[in-house]
Design a protein around this nucleic acid. Structure first.
Length: 458
DNA sequence: AAATGCAGCAACCGCTTCGAC
DNA sequence: GGTCGAAGCGGTTGCTGCATT
């Protein structure tokens, strides 16, 4: 923007250190941190600094950014230099506002990728992740203000069609996410709930949601690991070398499974314990709910809002569809924002979580919506024969949670389960636990992973 | 004209990942 | 295999300028 211009030194400066240092008289811009060496500046870059950095990079190229700082005498950390170069000084940067085409592409990409700004930037030549991120945040706020869907129907449909015809190169798991997006109705204010149920095209997506059959486990794993290009043999090798000791995957790959009755009709079921070693790394996918106590109820809250059109962005009857499908998903949304796309884990987990979500209805945190949820939305899934049939047809696994609501968070999977560290024989209680990590788990981002069985493959 | 609110953007911060040793 | 530093990434903050009152 124009922050640099607001600096008093607009004229092109001489590139000497005295000049640079003299500009640090503005003590407010000096980092308060005490470090060995010169104090580093913070705040907007001056034209002087830009010129120094630009000259250096043009001469030496982009190598070690900390060396840049040392060599140029810039009172900026290497990280700051890198950011300045990448976001403002790079010669291939496209300046100015986004074109309509770029905007559409961003929407499309976001519907598939979520907040993967860097990946999106890679598909938008001359644009930076920061630009895209800022654009999206602005757009998000605007849509919330104006009560418009953040994903226009036409763009998302186009994206979906591209996927279906193989013209897009997104992963299977991303496609899953997109498929679920079809079902949630967020992007398509013109559809209706009844239409959704009757719409064969819409229905056709539903069976993909729980496509977590036994035979698909390895594929899901490797997709999520970006190993999709590997052949089966190599995948098996990688898996063998992987840190993850995952009997289901190994069994699936080896064609053997001698564990417990964890499978029913070829589909993975979490309703029964699986014995054996489990070492599952918590992935870094950040889907943190701000309030750990809230995360298990957020979707219901959102659903209730949708059902009552309290959420201005769910203002069609499609919101009902969304609301119902949201019931299936116990995953906290990032900052509770309605428009978050459904990441891969989300998509697959929704199937398994739906019954839990219903069952968890009483695990209320006192949200104003809870009463409403309790009395109206909560049992819609059970009461709606169409939806129920749809769900049953999709999810052949037994109910995940048949416990009483009060037992919902009984399983402190992350800290107490013998699976993680104890010498005791492992009997993971993920019947509920893996879906609902302990609310006191400080790593709220972990919740999202445990909320989705397939996400443990990440 | 001054005060206030808000949108947009640049930069920072903290965390994760990667690669070298 | 462990450690450390650099780079990358995403979320958040805070500044600036414009619009509104």
């Amino acid at each position: 923007m124009t922050r640099a211009k607001s600096e008093s030194d607009q004229e092109m400066p001489a590139l000497d250190q005295a000049d640079l240092a003299s500009r640090d008289d503005d003590s407010a811009r000096v980092s308060p941190r005490r470090r060995p060496g010169p104090q580093l500046k913070k705040g907007p870059w001056t034209p002087t600094e830009d010129a120094v950095l630009e000259a250096y990079v043009k001469k030496h190229g982009v190598q070690n950014w900390n060396v840049v700082q040392k060599d140029t005498g810039l009172l900026r950390c290497g990280k700051s230099c890198r950011l300045r170069w990448a976001n403002h000084l790079r010669p291939d940067l496209k300046k100015g506002t986004f074109t309509k085409e770029e905007e559409n592409l961003i929407i499309k990409l976001h519907s598939k990728m979520g907040n993967k700004w860097a990946r999106m930037a890679a598909r938008l030549p001359g644009r930076t992740d920061n630009e895209i991120k800022n654009y999206w945040n602005t757009r998000r706020k605007k849509c919330q203000r104006t009560s418009t869907p953040i994903y226009p129907a036409d763009i998302c449909l186009q994206a979906s069609n591209e996927d279906q015809h193989g013209s897009a190169d997104f992963s299977f798991s991303e496609k899953l996410a997109n498929d679920l997006l079809h079902g949630n109705g967020l992007y398509d204010p013109s559809s209706t709930w009844g239409g959704f149920i009757d719409d064969q095209e819409a229905l056709s997506y539903a069976p993909q949601l729980p496509d977590v059959s036994f035979s698909n486990l390895p594929a899901l794993y490797f997709e999520s690991k970006n190993y999709g290009f590997m052949d089966q043999v190599n995948q098996a090798e990688v898996l063998k070398e992987s840190e993850i000791s995952f009997p289901l995957l190994n069994a699936a790959i080896n064609g053997t499974f001698d564990g417990s009755h964890a499978f029913s009709n070829g589909n993975f079921s979490t309703s029964r314990p699986i014995t054996g070693p489990w070492k599952i790394e918590l992935p870094s996918f950040q889907y943190a709910g701000s309030d750990p106590n809230n995360w298990s109820t957020y979707p219901r809250t959102c659903a209730a809002q949708g059902a009552n059109f309290a959420d201005p962005c769910m203002h069609s009857s499609a919101a009902m569809a969304s609301a119902k499908f949201e019931h299936m998903c116990v995953v906290p949304r990032n900052s509770g924002q309605f428009e978050e796309p459904l990441p891969e884990a989300h998509a697959v987990s929704s199937a398994e979580n739906q019954q839990l979500s219903v069952g968890s209805s009483s695990a209320s945190t006192g949200s104003p919506c809870d009463a409403m949820v309790e009395t109206s939305e909560l049992h819609l899934l059970e009461q709606d024969p169409n939806l129920n049939a749809l769900v049953n047809s999709c999810f052949s696994a037994p109910p995940l949670c048949q416990a009483s609501p009060g037992e919902l968070q009984c399983s402190d999977f992350s800290s107490a389960s013998p699976v993680f560290g104890s010498d005791e024989p492992a009997v993971p209680q993920y019947e509920i636990g893996y879906l609902l990590p302990h609310p006191e788990d400080s790593r709220t981002d972990a919740f999202s992973h445990w909320s989705a069985m397939p996400s443990v493959f990440q």
